[in-house]
């Protein structure tokens, strides 16, 4: 399949900084992939996201090398509006990205900017709210929403523009466990049902590994690992080397496996760990 995103030898150094924020990243993304990015603070995760949605190099000054192609076209040669038609973005702070006072207006905002016809806007709003499952919030004021609701509104606003790719920079960092789960459930559904390509930066590794298909681990501006979650838990050093941890249940089974009590696949979730633990005795014999 033709890649929807291809990144070649990408490096970026912010104006005024001595060290590159990201360096020599080369990677491709196929349509419909669900990718997670993790890594310690300052690893270049946000910078990479900004290169995908065109803020770099269009708004952010600095030294830009290499290429990012979306659907085969280089972002450097695209107009910003063209990029945002293909790549939707959701940021960390729900407070800062919502500009309108009602949910409906917020979702209409982007559509209006693209000059979509009023009756089409109406249909798109209804559709976006349905896809995210927040029809009930349509006429609510944006100031009275919970954090999880705000983030889902932000996702709906991005989805209403019908992008092919959705990039999210730590969308759950301000949310409680329920809000976090709500956001990931929505992402999973958008990915499964509508084939949306999703790239999400996330610190909460337990939930991340449960949902995504492919993990990029970044450190010091470089992409140090690009593996499916199953492979990541088999090599915990990929995460521990950069100061992160695999989920506790994976770690438990990893240690049991190392000590010879277990020999099967390593689990990613609590449910999988339950079945693994049941097989544990057989593994020892």
């Amino acid at each position: 399949m033709k890649p929807v995103i291809s990144i070649e030898q990408l490096s970026f150094t912010y104006a005024g900084s001595e060290h590159p924020a990201i360096s020599e990243i080369s990677v491709t993304v196929k349509p419909g992939e669900f990718i997670g990015i993790t890594g310690p603070a300052g690893a270049g995760k946000s910078t990479l996201i900004l290169c995908l949605n065109g803020i770099i190099p269009h708004f952010q000054h600095g030294e830009y090398r290499g290429r990012v192609r979306i659907d085969g076209v280089e972002t450097l040669t695209m107009h910003c509006a063209e990029i945002s038609r293909k790549v939707g973005s959701v940021f960390q702070d729900p407070e800062a990205q919502i500009v309108a006072s009602t949910v409906e207006d917020e979702i209409a905002f982007g559509l209006e900017n693209f000059g979509v016809e009023p009756d089409v806007i109406e249909a798109r709003i209804t559709d976006a709210l349905q896809r995210i499952g927040i029809e009930g919030l349509r006429h609510r004021s944006t100031t009275e929403l919970s954090g999880g609701q705000k983030q889902r509104v932000a996702i709906a606003a991005a989805v209403a523009l019908r992008p092919e790719i959705l990039v999210l920079d730590e969308p759950t960092s301000e949310l409680d466990p329920l809000g976090t789960k709500e956001v990931f459930e929505v992402l999973k559904q958008l990915n499964r049902e509508y084939g949306l390509t999703i790239i999400v930066v996330e610190q909460k590794i337990n939930i991340l590994l449960e949902y995504i298909e492919r993990l990029w681990v970044m450190n010091g501006g470089r992409l140090v690992a690009d593996e499916p979650p199953r492979r990541i838990v088999n090599q915990p050093e990929l995460l521990t080397d950069v100061g992160l941890q695999i989920p506790p249940v994976s770690e438990l089974m990893y240690r049991l496996k190392a000590a010879g009590y277990y020999s099967g696949e390593l689990p990613l979730t609590v449910d999988e760990a339950y079945w693994a633990l049941l097989k544990c005795r057989g593994g020892k014999r």
């Binding site: 466990p177 337990n206 249940v249 633990l277």
Partner: peptide
């Protein structure tokens, strides 16, 4: 709407 950590959740499945 809170969930215990992974280890207690796992153990309580038994």
């Amino acid at each position: 709407n809170l969930f215990p950590p992974q280890i207690p959740t796992l153990v309580q499945k038994f």
